[in-house]
Write a protein that binds this DNA or RNA. Sequence first.
DNA 1: GTGACTTTGTGCATCGGTTCACAAAGGGAT
DNA 2: ATCCCTTTGTGAACCGATGCACAAAGTCAC
Lengths: 225, 225
Amino acid sequence: MKSPSQPRDRGIPEATVARLPLYLRALHGMAERGIATVSSEDLAVAAGVNSAKLRKDLSHLGSYGTRGVGYDVEYLVYQISRELGLTQDWAVAIVGVGNLGRALANYGGFVSRGFRVATLIDADPEVVGDTIAGLNVEHIDELEAVIKRRGVSIVVLATPAAAAQEVCDRVIAVGVTSILNFAPVVLSVPDGVDVRKVDLSIELQILAFHEQRKAGGPLMAVESQ
Amino acid sequence: MKSPSQPRDRGIPEATVARLPLYLRALHGMAERGIATVSSEDLAVAAGVNSAKLRKDLSHLGSYGTRGVGYDVEYLVYQISRELGLTQDWAVAIVGVGNLGRALANYGGFVSRGFRVATLIDADPEVVGDTIAGLNVEHIDELEAVIKRRGVSIVVLATPAAAAQEVCDRVIAVGVTSILNFAPVVLSVPDGVDVRKVDLSIELQILAFHEQRKAGGPLMAVESQ
DNA sequence: GTGACTTTGTGCATCGGTTCACAAAGGGAT
DNA sequence: ATCCCTTTGTGAACCGATGCACAAAGTCAC
């Protein structure tokens, strides 16, 4: 006799974690359209993955499906949200209020569920004091104070490359351990700190590589012997 | 007897391709600082990877190092650039000139090497005709014409989610096969079309997952009795 | 209650990527 | 020319992720 619908494995594969938000989005869409139940096959199509992979991913959270029927949409939304930690509210700070920082501050998409932009911070006296997306821009000198005051636990770096490492060091010093970095630099951080990196230029370069391949490759003519 | 310094393997692993831009950036920095030669160990540190991986990655391009010495910085920059297709100029169209589209248009970083924002396109009559980052915003009705006229081969989608699939279909219909998608939707595309996806909300959710883990897990209290 | 049908959850083979560890290759000193 | 030192390039073991294919588990109709 064993507890049946308990998450059995606390170690969820990284690849699975990266796909859970995808499933969640698809499920939200279905919930809005009033769909109560969904099969792994249908959900897989909606999320753009194959159904075996989807089932294996979900099986890491627990046994939440019903054989012969599928998954209850509402229930699965709840379970995935809980697993991802979206049942609580995360305070996010955006450091660097240039074009990108502004765009992020105004981007409704991520504010929606679980995340809240708690503060905007910049070094330029020209923008400090401005109100962007309903928030007052604070001065970088206040960085540590604001992060503590607002209970920020996730920091988004949208600074110039040259400033990123310093800001990174400072926020880590006050206890932040999750960073989303848009600056085109490799940040060095101590163990226990998670950095995720978004780099537009790298994405374009990868596309260019494949585009070039389609067109015949860099050394078409030299096709080995 | 075999040709010695020829790229031997035309099939470069995807994981390697994704790291080449990283190496390239580190190398550019070194070139600017006047460094002529670099060991795999030093370059690996600068790029934030381990040196065995770096050497294996570079070995896929050919044998461009000198044992006992390292790699010639300039030469390696050239070889990687060539492999990634950055020796030619890629015309990029940005569709959707909201906050994000504007930020991308103004982002100097990717315009620098190999890429050129050739046109901005939007559906909102309010912004069509405006000049942003030195470019006239064209109307979405002109999408196909502009793409052909400007020789665009890479399209960046920064539209609302609801519009992304339609724009995607239209640009594919006129021959575009490389798309960078910022809209939070799963695009469905025919074989032969590459889509890369950047989703801010997903990145935050992955961070939240790990942050929650550090704090003790989702159901600490319910620790399976 | 029984049987037919559907769909999950997973064991297993496979694959791509990472890491180790070392032989091969080159440079520089003598 | 020979030896020693450094660093590359790669064979081989390992590790995690993917996908197939099917038994187990449940529903529904009668």
